[in-house]
């Protein structure tokens, strides 16, 4: 599903190139649950952003679903966001002025999904995440864990084939973190959604089935998780 070839990323400052990613070559297949780990500043978020097409690599090729996306035009990229990729953020990034319901609805509006289909999908998600009672509340009226649930529900609303999550539990207590991780695992196993997450926690990484260790912009280790 994802094919990274010799990806490099550097920032040039006064002629000095500071590399953030070097020679990253890897393949992620449909249905995998990959955790990216490494020390702070290693380039994990950068890698995830490149996978999510939020940043462009300075060098190398990137194929998404068999299509070279390093030089993708805006319209095509929006298509991918609408239909294939769901983002989950450490800071949740819900829209403050909108209710839980409206937050989940937002991607569906851009996907131009009919109103009845929309309503049933949102009802489904609210139900599944046990937040029906909260649907008319605003984000600042929810706990962090609840906000992240809404964030994931929103990412799932468009029925993506892959979820990219940058430290989704970074701001959460461990109990809530476990809940989220279980949810990811379930989504991965039952719905076959590909998941790539960045995490600092060994424990969280064990929910997945593969770990990419990154240090100084280089993939040091690529291990399978044995349950």
């Amino acid at each position: 599903m994802i094919q990274l070839n010799n990806i490099e990323k550097y920032y040039a400052n006064k002629g000095v190139k500071s590399y953030i990613l070097r020679h990253v070559t890897t393949t992620i297949k449909q249905g995998e649950f990959v955790s990216i780990m490494g020390p702070s500043g290693a380039g994990k978020s950068t890698l995830l952003n490149i996978i999510g097409m939020l940043e462009e690599p300075t060098y190398g090729t990137y194929e998404f679903l068999g299509e070279d996306v390093t030089t993708l035009n805006e319209r095509k990229r929006i298509e991918l966001y609408r239909n294939h990729i769901g983002f989950v953020f450490q800071a949740y990034h819900l829209i403050d002025e909108m209710t839980v319901y409206e937050n989940i609805e937002a991607p569906l509006l851009y996907k131009k999904i009919g109103s009845s289909e929309r309503a049933s999908r949102i009802a489904d998600l609210l139900d599944r995440f046990n937040i029906v009672a909260k649907k008319d509340l605003f984000p600042n009226q929810l706990s962090g864990g609840q906000q992240q649930l809404v964030g994931i529900a929103r990412a799932l609303a468009a029925q993506p084939s892959i979820i990219l999550a940058d430290e989704p539990t970074g701001n959460l207590q461990s109990a809530q973190a476990d809940e989220i991780m279980n949810l990811f695992k379930k989504l991965n196993q039952e719905d076959g959604i590909t998941i790539i997450q960045v995490t600092h926690s060994e424990k969280n990484a064990t929910y997945g089935n593969r770990i990419l260790h990154i240090a100084d912009g280089v993939v040091k280790d690529d291990v399978k998780v044995i349950v």
């Binding site: 999510g52 939020l54 805006e74 319209r75 929006i78 966001y81 609408r82 983002f87 990034h93 819900l94 829209i95 403050d96 002025e97 937002a106 991607p107 851009y110 996907k111 929103r154 468009a158």
Partner: peptide, 16 residues
């Protein structure tokens, strides 16, 4: 700005 960025990753086009 933040809201706009969120909307963009949710699939909003510049026109939207």
């Amino acid at each position: 700005k933040k809201e706009i960025s969120i909307r963009k990753v949710l699939g909003a086009s510049t026109g939207n």
